[in-house]
Amino acid sequence: MADWTLFEVFIRSKHGLNHKHVGSVHAADSEMAIENARDLYTRRNEGVSIWVVPSAAITATATDEKEALFDPSDDKIYRHAGFYKLPDEVGHM
């Protein structure tokens, strides 16, 4: 995929919050980057808004990034450990 561009992805997970950097995707253009980012980084919640920026367009200092986490939603419950009922005797898994 040498010709697909690397895009950095920023997601606003809830109204009122800032967009946060979550990672990157490869895509042929920015529209595809938005779709790929949506499919990859919002599998467990509906991100309210997505930004994509070609990685090459970012100028950075050497400062640290903050951790980016997603809060799971209740939409696809089988993705969450609590969905699987195990007997008490199994203990923590």
């Binding site: 990672g23 599998r43 467990r44 640290d64 990034e65 951790e67 980016a68 986490l69 997603f70 799971p72 089988y78 993705r79 969450h80 450990a81 969905f83 699987y84 009922k85 195990l86 199994v90 898994m93």
Partner: peptide
């Protein structure tokens, strides 16, 4: 840093995989 953050996200999402299998 980037590896650590990727692992945090992976671990968070993967918690259901093991229970799903055991079930």
């Amino acid at each position: 840093g980037p590896y650590s953050r990727a692992m945090i996200r992976v671990c968070k999402e993967e918690s259901f995989h093991q229970r799903q299998g055991y079930e």
